[in-house]
């Protein structure tokens, strides 16, 4: 029983990371109908930036905030410089460009910071204020930070005019323009936010998996799985899906498949959900236009 609880809790901690990435993926998907295959590498690159800032002597939370700002601006720049010109190009062009970005970020990180693994600090105290063997302080911290971030994003989209405008621009761009919303700006904002959310995920997971250019590939796969499970049209669903994937991963890893087939597990989940319940748990069925 203890093991079960322990696995579930640590699954929730990883799940928080997957939830963040799933949210980032869904935000981009809703805005431009594409999967950002580079989301993981962007997060990894952001994390390296934070690492560099810390290595230069910045206090953790300063590095954290600066990294978020840089990621936000970087995300906006990617949208404006790279994706805006090919907005109407066929899907394959987009896939190719996402893959190109993956490659570029991966290689850039390798070039600047080398492919050796690096330790990334955890900002949380070494001990919890209460006695427990079930969960470690960093795991509690991950879940806490993620929940705070998700809450802020929820409030932003739900209750602010800009958040509302972003939703409108993503769902019906033409009507949005007719009420004076600049869809271009909203797209840029969306990319910036997604990049920042990804950066938080990267900084939270880096102390666990160590920092290196290839660290995010498998994690992104779980992020995708979370997004697909929750429903690609539902940001809230994606978050739930992410947490769910974290718990499933931990439990399946402990009781069913062992730790060595985790990626295969994600593959099976993705294919199965896409086949049998393409809208996910919380999404709407998307009618395919031909």
């Amino acid at each position: 029983m203890d093991q079960f609880l322990q696995q579930t809790l640590s699954g929730l901690a990883n799940g928080a990371i997957y939830a963040s990435l799933a949210l980032a993926v869904v935000m981009i998907y809703q805005a431009i109908d594409h999967f950002n295959f580079a989301q993981g590498e962007m997060a990894m690159f952001s994390t390296f930036i934070a690492w560099q800032l810390i290595a230069w002597g910045a206090p953790y939370w300063v590095a954290f905030v600066v990294c978020l700002a840089i990621s936000f601006i970087g995300g906006m720049a990617i949208e404006r410089i790279i994706f805006a010109p090919i907005h109407d190009a066929p899907a394959l062009s987009h896939v190719v460009v996402f893959i190109a970005l993956t490659l570029i970020f991966n290689a850039m990180a390798g070039f600047i910071w080398e492919f050796t693994i690096k330790e990334f600090p955890s900002p949380f105290p070494a001990e919890l204020p209460f006695e427990t063997k079930l969960i470690g302080p960093h795991e509690v911290g991950i879940v806490g930070i993620t929940l705070i971030m998700l809450g802020m994003i929820y409030v932003f989209f739900r209750f602010t005019p800009i958040g509302l405008a972003m939703r409108a621009a993503a769902a019906s761009p033409e009507s949005a323009r007719l009420v004076g919303i600049s869809v271009k700006k909203m797209l840029g904002l969306g990319w910036g936010l997604a990049a920042a959310v990804g950066a938080v995920a990267g900084m939270m997971i880096a102390p666990v998996v160590f920092l290196e250019p290839n660290m995010m590939l498998g994690i992104l796969l779980y992020g995708f799985a979370g997004a697909v499970v929750g429903g690609l049209t539902s940001p809230g669903g994606a978050v739930v899906g992410g947490f769910l994937m974290g718990v499933l991963e931990a439990l399946a890893g402990t009781y069913v498949i062992g730790s060595e087939l985790k990626l295969t597990f994600a593959l099976v989940v993705i294919v199965a959900v896409l086949l049998f319940r393409p809208a996910g748990l919380f999404g709407r069925v998307v009618v395919q236009r031909v």
């Binding site: 509302l164 939703r167 409108a168 769902a171 019906s172 033409e174 009507s175 949005a176 007719l178």
Partner: peptide
């Protein structure tokens, strides 16, 4: 607009 242009999901 023609077709009303409703933001259907809000």
């Amino acid at each position: 607009p023609e077709g009303r242009g409703t933001f259907v999901r809000v």
